[in-house]
């Protein structure tokens, strides 16, 4: 009797686990077909699509860009973790998969706003898992390693919403810290793990000499000013916005911060937390 009883704890764990697994089978990581999102922006290549390389059916694949929504993209499993600084650049248009060797859910192109550089959050058997620039926030996907150029960025950008502070780290050491302005209560700056998606100038925008769009989007604004609600780092004409929550989601920084941040490679991780 007692030897049989010795297994009860284990069986409890097994059954409870199976029940929970069954109960959560409609969880976040469901491969699915990509669907076209907004296409009204001008930067990048919104709307262009490629063909899936898997299966016999021809499947339209949406490009994963700041203008699109990729459904079925696995959710970032560790939105507060750093990485080892590896970033990748597609050498050619390449499918984005929900899992290594699995169904293609989107396509990644070599150039979007700028050259496409994406942070690597995991690697497995010749595949790399990257953060995606498309909606929804926290989207990830797997790319074939053979389609990618690799590089290393020694930088990490940390954004602390509670203290409204941005810190720039180089090889783990802080090399700069600045007060920032963040999104107001009804248009908050989204927390989580994202990355520097691009670096551009816009003669029609007077508020910042250079704008640094991130891979994330406003959670409350589907579009803004004719764009897809992309969150960005940039300056503001007046410095009284620093230390305030008054933006529509963007991260407003002082000019000297922008000067340093424009040196940082695209693909560099941006960790936004509530601290």
């Amino acid at each position: 009797m007692l030897s049989a009883a010795a297994g009860v704890l284990a069986v409890l764990v097994v059954l409870a686990g199976l029940m929970w697994m069954i109960g959560s089978s409609d969880g976040a990581e469901h491969p699915g077909r990509a669907q076209q999102g907004e296409q009204d922006g001008r930067a990048g290549q919104p709307g262009r699509s490629g063909q899936s390389e898997t299966g016999t059916d021809t499947v339209e694949l949406v490009d994963s860009t700041t203008h699109t929504t990729v459904e079925g993209a696995p959710v970032d499993p560790a939105p507060r973790q750093g990485t080892d600084g590896i970033i990748v650049h597609p050498l050619r248009p390449t499918p984005v998969h929900a899992e290594p060797g699995g169904e293609a859910i989107a396509r990644m192109t070599p150039t979007q706003i700028s050259d496409t550089w994406l942070p690597v959050i995991d690697e497995r058997d010749g595949w790399v898992r990257v953060l995606l620039p498309s909606r929804p926030n926290g989207s990830t996907g797997w790319l074939r390693g053979e389609d990618l150029e690799r590089a290393f960025t020694p930088y990490t950008i940390r954004v602390h919403l509670e203290s409204m502070t941005l810190r720039l780290l180089f090889r783990g050491d802080e090399i700069g810290s600045w007060p920032i302005g963040i999104g107001k209560a009804d248009t908050p700056t989204p927390a989580g793990r994202t990355f520097l998606l691009g670096s551009f100038t816009d003669a029609e925008q007077q508020f910042s000499p250079v704008i640094l769009p991130l891979g994330s989007h406003s959670d409350t604004l589907d579009d803004f000013g004719g764009g897809p609600g992309t969150v960005a780092i940039h300056t503001w004409p007046t410095e009284d916005v620093l230390g305030t929550a008054t933006s529509h989601g963007c991260i407003r920084v002082p000019r000297d911060a922008l000067d340093r941040l424009t040196e940082v490679p695209l693909g560099t991780l941006v960790l936004v937390d509530q601290q």
Binding site: A43, G44, S114, A151, G183, T201, D202, S247
Partner: peptide
């Protein structure tokens, strides 16, 4: 202690001229 990866250093970006309305 972290070993530096073997990958080459990523390039410093050059801003491009384009238009992308961001959340401001």
């Amino acid at each position: 202690a972290q070993d530096e990866p073997e990958e080459p250093m990523a390039p410093k970006p050059t801003p491009v001229e384009t238009q992308l309305p961001v959340t401001g």
